[in-house]
């Protein structure tokens, strides 16, 4: 196809903004749940299109270090799964390193699917660090 503008991400973003500003305020109460789900779905799509795989290189590096391999994230994740499955990461210190990488991957996904939850989690873990320095949790 010819590169038509505006792009998909832009279209989704402006559709969501119009929906929020013009439609959501006048939605009848019995349709509000569906309307909020529509806004939520558009928001996830907008963030996914905007992210466009940014940050994946850093995560791939972290996974690669953990399992001593190279490649992009898509190629490395099934190999990580295999390593977990066969017990290569069973030792307690290996599990701790694994959990840290898994937490980074999960936070990156959460930034797309539920940034509010990510923000709440970030402020919770920072408060905890502040209150109990050095204890981890």
């Amino acid at each position: 196809m010819i590169n038509d503008d505006p792009k998909a991400g832009d279209l989704v973003a402006i559709a969501l903004r119009s929906f929020r500003e013009s439609i959501l305020p006048v939605i009848p109460a019995d349709q509000r749940f569906t309307a909020l789900m529509i806004a939520n779905a558009l928001g996830v799509a907008e963030r996914e299109l905007a992210a466009g795989g940014k940050g994946e290189a850093g995560l791939a590096d972290a996974v690669g270090k953990l399992i001593n391999a190279k490649g992009d994230l898509r190629a490395l994740l099934p190999r990580l799964c295999t390593d977990i499955d066969v017990g290569r990461l069973d030792a307690p210190e290996r599990q701790a390193a694994l959990r840290a990488v898994l937490m980074d991957i999960t936070r990156a996904r959460l930034a797309v699917s539920n940034p509010k939850r990510l923000a709440a989690e970030t402020s919770r873990s920072e408060t905890q660090k502040f209150e109990t320095p050095g204890s981890g949790r």
Binding site: M37, V44, R109, L110, S113, N114, E121
Partner: peptide, 15 residues
């Protein structure tokens, strides 16, 4: 739509 969005709850469950 509700079932579709349930799939995107996976990251928070995994967190």
């Amino acid at each position: 739509l509700e079932l579709a969005l349930t799939g995107r709850m996976l990251p928070e469950i995994e967190l």
